[in-house]
Design a binder for these strands. Structure first.
Lengths: 137, 137
DNA sequence: CGCGTTTGAGAACAAACGTTCTTGACTGGT
DNA sequence: ACCAGTCAAGAACGTTTGTTCTCAAACGCG
């Protein structure tokens, strides 16, 4: 009953992953999200509760549907531009100040170590950190 | 001539390094700076021009007076909590969107590679990234 | 001392922030 | 076809943002 949703929640989540991978949490406004996702503010708040709620959803979706698949079946994918950016940004920026983000990021890094070994994991993180710098304007 | 300054510009800069090491650029407001530094808004703007001006000054001071000394004389210092945080945060958050920050961070990372070798540099960055996560609330 | 200049305290600003409200359009189930 | 319930469009809310203005107090120098 009621009018059906005009957007796909998962597609929006995936698109939000890209936005939050590019700009830090505090650097990305709700207006930016509304514009970049093409979804109305109301729908965003109805669906995700708050900006932080959306961020948490995005982070969990990313860990489960992007990072974890890359780890468990196609580790070459970790070299690509956008596979580690959100984790990197979350670890440096939000994790220290948000317990929930910290826990998610912490276990993701532990998983990274399990699969690749601590040394290779660090090599990868360092490499991706450097690559981020020249993502241009 | 005129009233003398009630604060030491370098001491304030050093204190600002600590603040910008803990919270991201967009997560740290001018009010936070005014409170944390104990310096009036007016004095901050008179001395550094803008928030970004202060950040740039802070970043340069940090690279020259904290990171560089650690690299060129006491590499053990790199293991300490606060020696790499600002670089890490700047690389992940601001560098991709601010050309000037990007250039500074880029050459700092290059210098890190020169001194430690690329592998050890990455190990260090990865290690520090993990440590950041549990910096608590 | 007193003039000229600069600092520091705080109010003020417009713009942007995250969030909520009002309203009208839409659709599925009876 | 109707009604109940959800949606979308956008205005509106109060707060916080970065920055600037006003003005009195504090000095160095003649």
């Amino acid at each position: 009953m009621g009018r059906p949703r005009g957007f796909d929640e998962e597609a929006v989540t995936r698109q939000a992953v890209a936005l939050f991978s590019a700009r830090a949490y505090d650097g990305l406004s709700v207006d930016d999200l509304v514009t970049g996702l093409g979804v109305h503010r109301n729908s965003l708040y109805k669906t995700f509760g708050s900006k932080r709620g959306l961020y948490l959803t995005v982070l969990r979706w990313y860990l489960r549907h992007k990072l974890e698949p890359a780890l468990s079946s196609d580790t070459a994918q970790l070299q690509e531009n956008d596979t580690l950016d959100l984790l990197l940004l979350a670890a440096a920026e939000q994790a220290p100040h948000d317990r929930e983000v910290g826990a998610l990021v912490g276990s993701a890094l532990a998983r990274l170590d399990d699969v690749l070994g601590p040394d290779a994991a660090n090599q990868l993180l360092g490499l991706r950190l450097r690559a981020r710098i020249n993502t241009g304007e």
